[in-house]
Nucleic acid binder design. Structure first.
Lengths: 200, 200
DNA sequence: TCCAATGTGGACCGATCGGTCAAGTATTCG
DNA sequence: CGAATACTTGACCGATCGGTCCACATTGGA
């Protein structure tokens, strides 16, 4: 009962894009509303605050990306190829954003996590949660790789965290240098970390 | 001629601390002035804009830290120990900030670089420059390590970038998890990356 | 059909934002 | 001493901030 609307989705979309390409602090509620084609009254009908919108945005984006991740890390894909696909995925995203926007945007979760980490505990915790989910995919791939002796046995969770850190750091470097191609070293770097000799 | 003052230094100090522990956007000019015990008029006597202050702050901080870096990476220190000292340095800073402030603050340059990377080119370029300087220290240590065959010959610059990325990523993870001890894996991760078997 | 629930429009709020300005005070040099 | 310079003071500006409010439009279920 009551009327229906897709304003909430439009707000989630607009907010994520604007915050990703700018920053949480630099994007105003008015701006988000304008881009979403929604009035301020409606905004606060759906979300109690700007921070709540950001929170919802993150969960929403994750859910949207999840099928892609599940496919990438499918147990049917050879373990090391899963990692390669993941590297290609990240590189692809940063390339696309850089081309569309003229500027490497980096990882949206890192951006907000570092900006608001000391100010908004809920947002910080949400980013930590999303990080943990990413690492679970990596960890699972690493364990499968160990099972078939593609890499030596070891602390899969710890390794996953290292690989994840590597990717975050390279994305920061790429953003600051405004060059998505810096992410090209991600895959070889991971192989180094895993002790796999490169092909060349 | 004319009167003298240390207001500029106080502004640089206050600004760096406030921006590091919060974020660029969340800290106002008024707030910086209050913490520095300086009036707004004086602020704009020394700096043309908030963004210029941030820029000056970064250069200032680097110059202050430089002797520490030069000592850490002195050619008289064995190459691999330089890297260990660097890891300990980063861990120490994050621990101190976390204890003093109740929250891991991460790398100040990453924080601002990711927040303003798409909005303020000068700031972005400055962060890129500081990153490059850090990598030069690492690169030099790696080359020295190669010279005495502590690690296999290879692309020192590329390896330095990977190590640097690893440290940035781990700092982001530590901030978001609010646990400085996550940086404990930095040293072992670097050894892994360099292909050095761990002691254990 | 009519009502209750749901979403919309947009004016409005006090606070704060980065930045300006002009008059005044201290200091150093000639 | 006097004038040029360097710094201080604090009131002030328009714009924008996140958030509130409420009359109104639209809808689905009974």
């Amino acid at each position: 009962m009551g009327r229906t609307s897709d304003a909430k989705e439009r707000l989630l979309d607009a907010a994520f894009d604007l915050i990703w390409t700018n920053s949480y602090g630099a994007v105003g509620v008015d701006q988000i509303c304008e881009q979403a084609g929604v009035n301020k009254g409606s905004f606060y009908h759906f979300f109690p605050s700007k921070s709540d919108l950001a929170l919802a945005t993150f969960e929403d984006q994750w859910n949207r990306r999840r099928p892609e991740f599940d496919a990438m890390f499918s147990p049917l894909v050879p373990p090391l190829e899963r990692l390669d696909r993941w590297c290609a995925f990240i590189l692809g995203i940063q390339r696309t954003m850089a081309r569309r926007f003229g500027q490497v945007c980096g990882c949206p979760f890192v951006n907000v996590g570092t900006e608001l980490g000391t100010q908004d505990v809920r947002l910080r915790d949400k980013v930590a949660e999303l990080f943990s989910r990413s690492q679970q995919y990596l960890e699972s791939a690493l364990r499968d790789a160990m099972a078939v002796a593609l890499i030596p046995e070891g602390d899969a969770a710890g390794l996953a965290r290292m690989i994840h850190a590597l990717s975050l750091g390279l994305q920061v470097q790429a953003k600051v240098a405004n060059d998505p191609e810096l992410l090209g070293v991600l895959a070889p770097a991971i192989r180094r970390l895993l002790g796999i000799p490169s092909d060349t």
